[in-house]
Computed example of a mutant assay.
Amino acid sequence: MAGFVPNEEIELYEEIKFEPSVMCEHIDKKLTFRASQLEDGDIICFQISPPVESYGQCRYPDVPSFLEYVHNRQVVHFRSLDKPKEDEFCLELSKLYTYDDVVERVARQLGLDDPSKIRLTSHNCYSQQPKPQPIKYRGVEHLSDMLVHYNQTSDILYYEVLDIPLPELQGLKTLKVAFHSSMKDEVVIHSIRLPKQSTVGDVINDLKTKVELSHPNAELRLLEVFYHKIYKIFPPNEKIENINDQYWTLRAEEIPEEEKNLGPHDRLIHVYHFTKDASQNQMVQNFGEPFFLIIHEGETLAEVKVRIQKKLQVPDEEFVKWKFAFLSLGRPEYLQDSDIVSSRFQRRDVYGAWEQYLGLEHSDSAPKRAYAANQNRHTFEKPVKIYN
């Protein structure tokens, strides 16, 4: 009879439960229902027994293994970290897959020979963005660990293809440093990759091989910038392992020759751009690129303004609209051209130098994103290039 399958080729199983874990037991066909404890409503699964010689070739050779597969099956949407809003491909995986299983299948999908060059990043279910920190090499046990975010489970993972294996990369520290050229009206962002035990001095030496300096013996310094204020000048011997460039901007620049020869009464002050927000009770809002400026004893604001205009290359018709103020802890005290600027910078009762600065009040005309192709920008609104 067509389609007839002998009884001895049928395997029977009882599906006892599916959640939270699969429980499925083999049924002995020689026993009665009562002996097998089978009752009305129980689920019986059957399969045709595979040939013994092909048993090991089957991915799911019996009902229990197939139910385990269905129970742990997970379709994952993979996105390139460079394009975090677009699905690149989907893979049907198991939640029980190990870290190595997952990266191996991603590498296979991408046609990559070395899975260790794949770096994965989990998804933040609340922000709908990649998590700030990528998954470390073998840093999680299973796919299910990669997809969980607090009490939520995602079906999205982000991937990168690295130029060196991830275990090797994890022994290095990568810092994004914005180099502010003294000769060009642009900012170039460089990725500096060095062993974690390296120092700021090593970063500067590496950067010197990548940038164009005004002269061969130019000295560089590394600054920490946050919300358009300079918070720190890194000492050359500081270890880079603990430097965080995730929220802070690291900025490198040449040290002007005049700053190397400060007189006994000269002061190096912070200068920031600011506006006042009418919607927030005239609160000061900083913007643009902060910088240092030397002020000399007895120098008037009118004399300081000449040097600032030259440094920032601001046209006369725009510069005449600017206002100048001394700010301490966010409170502006507007200055007149005849005021002696150095007399305002005598206080020592402030938290840090960044909270006592010369403020340049003017409109923030810079676009939210500036590019090097725009050649007509002022230096206080420098366009940006990114080099990897």
Rank of each mutant, 00 (worst) to 15 (best):
M1A: 04
M1F: 08
G3H: 06
P6E: 10
N7C: 07
E15F: 09
K17M: 12
K17W: 08
P20N: 01
V22I: 13
M23P: 05
E25S: 08
E25T: 15
I27G: 00
L31P: 02
T32Y: 09
R34W: 13
S36E: 10
G41C: 13
C45Q: 09
Q47R: 15
Q47V: 08
S49D: 04
E53K: 15
R59L: 15
R59K: 14
S65F: 08
F66P: 02
E68S: 15
N72I: 04
F78M: 07
R79D: 08
R79Q: 12
S80W: 11
E86R: 14
E88L: 02
C90V: 14
S94L: 13
D100M: 02
D100R: 04
D101G: 14
R105T: 03
R108Y: 03
D113G: 01
S116G: 02
K117F: 10
I118M: 04
R119C: 07
T121P: 15
S122Q: 13
S122E: 14
S127G: 09
S127R: 11
S127E: 13
Q129I: 08
P130D: 04
P130A: 02
P130C: 08
Q133E: 11
Q133P: 05
Q133W: 03
P134D: 02
I135F: 14
K136Q: 13
Y137W: 12
Y137R: 02
V140P: 00
S144I: 11
M146E: 04
M146I: 03
V148Q: 10
V148F: 01
T153D: 08
Y158T: 08
V161C: 00
P167K: 06
L172Q: 14
K173Q: 05
V177S: 14
H180W: 09
S182Q: 04
M183R: 12
E186C: 09
K196P: 14
S198A: 07
S198T: 10
G201S: 10
N205F: 13
L207N: 10
K210Q: 15
L213Y: 11
N217T: 12
N217E: 12
R221H: 09
F226C: 11
F226V: 01
I230L: 07
Y231K: 10
N237F: 05
E238D: 06
I240K: 01
E241Y: 03
Q246H: 13
L250D: 02
L250I: 00
P256R: 07
E258C: 04
H265S: 12
L268Q: 05
L268E: 00
H270T: 07
V271H: 02
Y272A: 00
D277W: 00
A278P: 10
Q280P: 03
N281E: 06
M283A: 07
Q285W: 00
G288S: 05
E289C: 01
F291I: 02
L293T: 09
I295W: 10
H296I: 00
L301R: 06
A302I: 01
R307D: 04
I308L: 06
V314H: 07
E318M: 05
F319S: 01
W322M: 02
A325V: 09
R331L: 08
P332Y: 00
E333C: 04
D337N: 03
S342W: 00
F345W: 11
R347L: 12
V350E: 09
V350P: 00
Y351I: 15
Y351K: 12
Y351M: 11
A353Y: 10
Y357R: 13
E361W: 13
H362S: 13
K368N: 14
R369C: 04
A370C: 13
A373W: 12
N374D: 15
N376Y: 12
K385E: 12
Y387L: 05
N388A: 07
